[in-house]
Structure formats: structure tokens, C-alpha cells
Design a protein around this nucleic acid. Sequence first.
RNA 1: GCGCCCUUAGCUCAGUUGGAUAGAGCAUCGGUUUUCUAAACCGAGGGUCGUAGGUUCGAAUCCUUCAGGGCGCGCCA
Length: 574
Amino acid sequence: MNFFNIYLEKIKKSTIKNKKKLDFKENQILNKIIVETPPDNFDCDLSTNIALILAKKTNKNPKIIAEKIKAILIHEIKHFSSIDIAGPGFLNIKLSNEAWFYVIKNIEKNKKNFGSNKKNHKYNIEFVSANPTGPLHIGHCRGAIFGDVLSNLLKFNGNKVTKEFYINDYGKQINDFSKSIYFRLKEIKFNTKFPSDETLYPGSYIIDISKKILNDEPDINLENFDKIKNKLKKQGLKYSMDLIKLDLKNLGITHDKFFSETTLVKNKSVEKVIKILKKKNLIEEGYLDPPKGEDNKNWKKVKRLIFKSSLFGDDTNRALTKNDNTWTYFANDLAYHSNKVSRKYDYLINILGADHAGYIRRISSAVNALSKKENILICKVCQLVKLIKNGQPYKMSKRKGDFIEIKDVLNEVGKDSLRFMMLSRSNDAELDFDFNKVLEKNKENPVFYVQYCYARINSLYTSLKINPKSMNKLTGLKFNPNDYEYKLLRKIIEWPKIVELSVKKLEPHRIPFYLYELVTIFHSYWSKGNEDSKFKFIVNGKIKNELTFKIFQLITIILKNAMHILDVSLPKKM
RNA sequence: GCGCCCUUAGCUCAGUUGGAUAGAGCAUCGGUUUUCUAAACCGAGGGUCGUAGGUUCGAAUCCUUCAGGGCGCGCCA
């Protein structure tokens, strides 16, 4: 229910009906027409560029065309009460009272769905997918929150979404992880020193995991690592995933599906995909060139299996087997994405960290080779988070084991602030995460500013002792808004458009920005009464104008819907 | 060397896929509380939208050039 689209269609319809008068033939030339919110300094509700577009296509003077269209629209569209021509030929439209009643009624009717554009696609969103070798750190949480909110947003817009976590439980890292547990176990049992080996994980959580394993099996035989390797891997993985799931839960995130990489290898999924690609002549046995960047010690010129990803725009072809003839990460990922393709989603979305952006070409090539649909895979990259504490950059080192865990941040700043803050920036831009700022409870911390609006509205209900639900039954409502109420209404009708745009561009950060703008007008209005009694909305303990409360109710609807998407709380009292 | 992202007010950032006088917050300066929540509000100053070209009625937005910053360039995951 996007009001701008509704009026766009009406405008188009009327224009096409009057084709001859306006002297054009092809309806397509109306494709670029938009209906949008006019700049603040114009006292009108909608604005359209139709005259400019039409003038360009028919080589006419835009102002003359504008006059013609104005006459047509004002005659044909009852919801338009007046139209001004401004600037180079914009039509600035004011909606009639009838139109505003229609808008208000419509929002109240849709309520929880107000803003939803009722699409019906099937999405798979893969996000977090952190290595299961320990708890999450602050760097993970941007992508985690981004993915979660994007899922909520798509669901709100009527789609079906599967939230998926790919467990990288295969390969070298998980081996190093089990070895680290092995040495910690020896350290605990026999007091042997934990080796200073760069490949091992030093973090203290390894000690905790080791203790748990020891608790399960106090008599575990530690003579030979290789003999208990698989056991340690399995147990370590389990406890590690417990840590990750707990972190996610505290962030308010639950995945629908956890997909294990090892499973793919075990049930020969990789071989199966390679067979398919071989038939398409996309696999070859051969040699690859050495890497272009820094020298790599492990690089060897060996005949190996190669995927011809350069046919799909990748810089180079990609290896599927390692030196020891096991599968590369990419080979397994190929199988994983083949699996996702076979599950018949309309879109596959991968949320990646900036350090994995270089991987996109490769995996997109693979999916394009595997799927009949074009560009079914969309990769969204979250840029880095820079931590700042007391005005200083705060560096983490995973190798030393001194990184900031999500649970510590949550303890300090809370889920609401963390989620809101992580979304208060475009995913394409780096984000400064300032510990001092998120702890502040004022305007500089936008989450409080937004929540405060809801709390203020609710305080009205309590102080006036009215039940907000009874407000639905208002009769004899008059449409006589003051300047602030007009501003609010104009902002309110933007909400579905914000949702639509956020979905289209997969950019949930637009929602916090919108909320901030909306509540700014509200807070302005609230305070205006102090200065000018004309703007007081309560007189002698009674509501002055029912429309005011109607508008506040519409704000409440939006706040609830939006904060539900963000999964940030909305307390009635603060 | 190559690829991706960024560059907008002193600082941190928005900017509705090409529109009107480029917007917020912070910081600075100055104001507002016997009043529906001051966790708030109002006002002022502050801009060559990194650079140089191009596309057109019209560019922060699209194309090209160059510069600066970040991330990556495995047969690690």
C-alpha cells in the first residue's frame, strides 16, 4: 500500500486517457515518471515530474505541458484539491480532505501490515557463517544484525525467508582447533605447557570447552592426538556452536537452518556437482598460474581439478582440489550453493564481511553456472566496524586471543542500542562504533530518541486516562491539521515507500534514518506547546482535537512495525 | 599490478536510481522548564558534494581520468 504508487497510477491513467490533447503516442514514455515527496519549503503533499518527462519526449516547453496536465488532473482526480506549477515544471499537488481520510482509514485498516507491499517471493539468506572455532566477536555482529533485519524486512514485505548458517566444520582450521583443545586438555590434566604455535588458538574459551569435554569424559586418553582427533573435533564443534548460538540468541537472532560443510563432503555432494559441471564443459584438469599478490609459500604447480569461472567474468579459473587432493573451500561451497539452488528459492542472498568481498565473483560464477535463473545470487557486503573507546581506536588481535566478544558488548550497551547502532549506517560504508556514545541516553543515541517518542505518546494516554483502543471509534472527525500535523502526515505516508526502497536495494539502514526524521517532527510539535499555547493538544485535561490523537496513533503503528523489523524494544515508559 | 568499497559542513554521516535553494546529528555561539515527560525544544554561523573532463533542459547521483583512505587478490576458511 504505497500511496505514491497509487497516485502515480492515477496520474498515468488520466494522462494516457488524454493522449491526444498532450500529443504523444507511446505509453512507454511515461515509465520514468515519479511521484515523490516535495522539498520541505513547498506547502504541498505530492510532487511529480510528469511534465518534464513528457516535454523531453515530445520536444515541447515543459511549463506549457504542465499547464495542460494540471487542468486534466484537477478535473479527473478527486483526491487532488490543488496543483501548483513550480521550478522547471514540477506539479506540486495538495491532497483533498477526502484523500487524507482515505489515507488514515487505510493505515488503520492495515495496521500491522501498514507499509508492507505484499510481495510473495522465496528468499534464502545466509549470514554470520562464522568459523565454529569459538564465540562471536564484535566484528561478526554487523553482518549478523544486518542479515537478521534484512530477513525481518523481507518477511514484513510478505516474502518467505529461510535464515541459514553455513558451518565451516571441514578443513585445516577445524583441525587446528581440535589440536588446541588437545593441548589445553593436557595442560589441565598434566600441567604441561600450552605450546606457542601460531597455528593454535590461544583464547581462554578453548580452556572452557576443554573443561566441558573433560567433564563429559574424565578418563579421556590423551596419549595420541590422532587417535582422539575426531572425538575432539566433534565435541569441540558442539560446544563451540553452543557458544555461537548463545551469542546469536542474545543478539535476538535465530537461524532456521544450520548447514554442515562436512556433510556435503561425506555424502559426495561435491562429486555430484562436479559431474554436472563437467557435462557443461566447465571443469578441466590442468595447472593454474601463481597468485598475483604476495608470494605464497604453499603454492605448487600441480595438476589439479579446475572450475572455469573466468567464463563467467571471474579474473581467473579456480582450484577445486588442494595439494593433498582434498576439496578446497570453494569446491565445497560450490556443492553448498548447488544445494541451495535445488531448493527452489527465488533469491539467494549471502551476507559477507568486507574481507570476503573478493570471493563474490567466484561464487556468483558458480551459481550462474548452476542455476537457470539469471543472477539469482545477491551478495551484500558489510564494511568493517571500527571500534572506538574514549576517543581512541580500539584494536583487536585474534591471534593473541584478545578480541572483544559480543557478550561483553551486550552486557555494556544492551541489545537495543547495539542493533540500532549497527544499522545506522549504509552497509557499504565503514562504521565507527563508539562505546561511549552508545551508552549515552540522549539525542546522540538515536535509539532512545525514537523510543522516547513512543513513551511520550503512551504517557498521554495514561495521564488522560484514556484507552488508545477507544480512539478507533472516533466519530465526526474533522480534518483541520496545523503545520506540525501536516508535516507528520506527510512523513507518515512515506513509510511504505521507505519499506519498498529498503527492500529493493536491500538496505535496511533506511529504516532507522526514517524513524529519526519522523520522531524529530513529533518532538518538535510536543515542545511547541510550551512556547505557543495554540499548539497545545491538551486543554483542561481534555483532547483539543481528535485528529491530533489520530495522527499519534498512526505514528504508533509505524513505530511498532518498524521496531518490529529492527527487533528493538519499544517501552511504554522510560 | 588488479578487483571491490569509500571521499558531501570543523567531526560522524543521510541524500527517495537525474530534479527545485544539497540535508541531519555532534561540536561552536545564543535562547527555552510555575505548562501534555527538558532523556526534550528553538535560533545562528558553517559547503567548489576529493580532482579534471564528458553526457543534457538539469549531475552529489550516470560515463571517463587522476588523487587519497579502507579491504582483498590461496592450492586458508
